[in-house]
Design a protein around this nucleic acid. Structure first.
Lengths: 352, 352
DNA sequence: ATTATAAGTGAAAGCGGTTTCAATTAGACT
DNA sequence: AGTCTAATTGAAACCGCTTTCACTTATAAT
């Protein structure tokens, strides 16, 4: 009943197993790693002892000895965001399938924390680092940061979900242009012409690309671009979506459809629309990105672009392991978005 | 431009630093750990080299040598649930403050995965394990599982958020009775008498306790217990909340208030109520637990019990480190809930 | 039965740190 | 200058596993 004292009990080691089995430690190691033939009677005996003592080989010693940990560090921006959480879980699954372990850190958007955690991951000798969100998603590469990443990459492969010019980082990311295209096609088909863009910062690559594509598509469809319909520099959460939509409506700007930067943002947009006494989708359609569980909870349910998290996670892990093992993959891999249509988008209202 | 080859470049070690600084490795180790006096000129020189090469001591070697990793494993049920995500982030913060690192694993509710991950954490020689959700929250302890945990605890302290009879696990958990009490007080004060309970499984400790307390409170207030108002054995998500509320309303059962097991569940409940043409809170009030960001997004905003995640995370980490360091703490620590009242709860409608 | 070849095995040297122990060196006081 | 104590230091052992190397034992082929 005493509190657990530290170092109270020596761990059992392969030497203990070896002694009791009447073999050498090398042999135990061989059965553990299945790295060489071991006479089956001895193997059986060793296995039995491992079972008996519930022996767990010390991963630190192992990692130290063979300089690989079969561990991949995932540095996420904020795991409380279901987009990141879903992606992380799928990374975990994919890693598991190829016998790797992932370890998660959250930078919470703070660059210095991000730098610190990157260092910590290196200390732990993770075999590779996957950065989800964070500086690696920025549109413009920060010089110091690029230098840091290059320094890290001298030892540890890094894969990011954005881009990082000036580094040999591999990247796996969503085809943001395509994602915008899907949404626009959907809305245009429904007859919308006054389509607003809410949320996001343009210094984030994917957001930037979406805005680019948005303008292109308008042009292709001979719709005049109206700056009033684009809310610049908002965030990615409920409050900013709510606020930006309020501002737009309060100014008397009336889109017939809104593309929100993600589901959080969309929820804010929807609330704002409701509070202005307007109906979704009769007066204004709302669509967004990420297709998180919130899309199902919204009233009406939210039309949202899905990213196939499972595929995304798999590609991320596959790229990381490829870099670790010197296997070659494309340096840039895309994840294709698909549209999930729900009740929040409908035909454009008739022109007055 | 070649893909990163594995083991391409030997890491720089304390020996390299030592040589260049003209001191012994022991000295470098001393400045690294600040474990003993080192003449300041040498110290300065060593520090300079560390800086110069951006030297990161190998955590594996360190862990192996001193048998502590300053790492705490967190085994969560599902990080996609914002409740767990928030708690995890706060654990991370709290750990950081005392110079520990946390590593996350998700069991996704699968017991065998949970067992496997527990093993993995032990292999990695985490100094302690915190189990958030999962089997450690079950009402009735499973014999095999208890044995497993005891086996683990022979080496590694474990703290759970539920309870685990038959082990020396420490536990930090929410005062679920109090949480129910807060909600009931609020509803009773608003004049509600027909209060429904939706969601959750009674084999989960906290849910069980809530149900217990619910009945007690009814009795204390001379309200007759009506089984029709309690949906047994649902889940903790949107769909189950939605389905259970539908079933209740379709059966003609009409509560004036609903206590949902968490915000997810509450969102389902709210949708069901809406679809039945009823108003929240005019016809039915809805309240729930966890106070996640969804509470703010709901329409109307959701009255929910908050758990002070920061305090919770801090207590969890403090308990873990206490066990690691042989410091004593209570074996059971509670986190007190508070009520956040929003628009989803209002006065009971007048009796017909 | 005799070789040639393959399979199985143990000793020992790392991996990169920490820590004990004994030896030096510095500083404080007569 | 001489002595005593405290502060610094380096050598070497060790943490627990992998792996090379050389050697022994089996198995297959002649």
């Amino acid at each position: 009943m005493q509190p657990q004292k530290n170092g109270e009990n020596k761990s059992i080691t392969i030497y203990d197993i070896a002694k009791e089995a009447g073999v050498s430690a090398s042999t135990v190691s061989r059965v553990l790693t299945n790295s060489a033939n071991v006479r089956s009677e001895k193997k059986k005996k060793v296995l039995a002892l491992i079972e008996k003592y519930n022996f767990k080989p010390n991963a630190l010693a192992k990692g130290l000895a063979d300089t690989k940990t079969r561990t991949i560090g995932v540095l996420a921006a904020d795991i409380r965001n279901p987009f990141y959480a879903s992606l992380f879980v799928e990374c975990e699954n994919a890693a598991r399938a190829v016998d790797y372990t992932v370890v998660l850190c959250n930078s919470l958007g703070e660059t210095d924390k991000e730098v610190e955690l990157l260092g910590k991951l290196q200390e732990q000798r993770v075999d590779a680092i996957i950065q989800i969100g964070g500086r690696g998603d920025d549109l413009a590469s920060n010089v110091e940061y690029v230098e840091l990443i290059n320094q890290i990459m001298a030892k540890t492969p890094v894969v990011v979900t954005g881009k990082l010019d000036g580094t040999r980082c591999h990247v796996v990311r969503i085809d943001a242009m395509k994602a915008m295209e899907i949404l626009m096609d959907h809305l245009l088909e429904l007859g919308h012409k006054r389509i607003a863009l809410i949320g996001g910062r343009k210094d984030v690559l994917s957001t930037f690309e979406k805005h680019q594509r948005y303008k292109q598509i308008l042009k292709e469809n001979m719709i005049e671009f109206d700056p009033a319909l684009v809310a610049e520099d908002g965030g990615y959460n409920f409050e900013t979506g709510y606020r930006q939509m309020n501002e737009m409506l309060d100014k008397g700007v009336r889109p017939t459809a809104v593309v929100a930067i993600n589901d959080f943002s969309a929820m804010g947009v929807m609330r704002s629309i409701n509070e202005h006494g307007l109906q979704i989708p009769q007066d204004i359609s709302v669509v967004s990105y990420d297709n998180t569980y919130m899309a199902e909870m919204a009233i009406p349910k939210l039309t949202s672009v899905d990213y196939n998290y499972e595929e995304y996670g798999r590609k991320l892990i596959d790229t990381a392991t490829a870099m670790i093992e010197g296997r070659k993959t494309g340096q840039l891999r895309m994840v294709m978005p698909t549209l999930v249509v729900r009740g929040s988008s409908g035909p454009a209202p008739l022109e007055l």
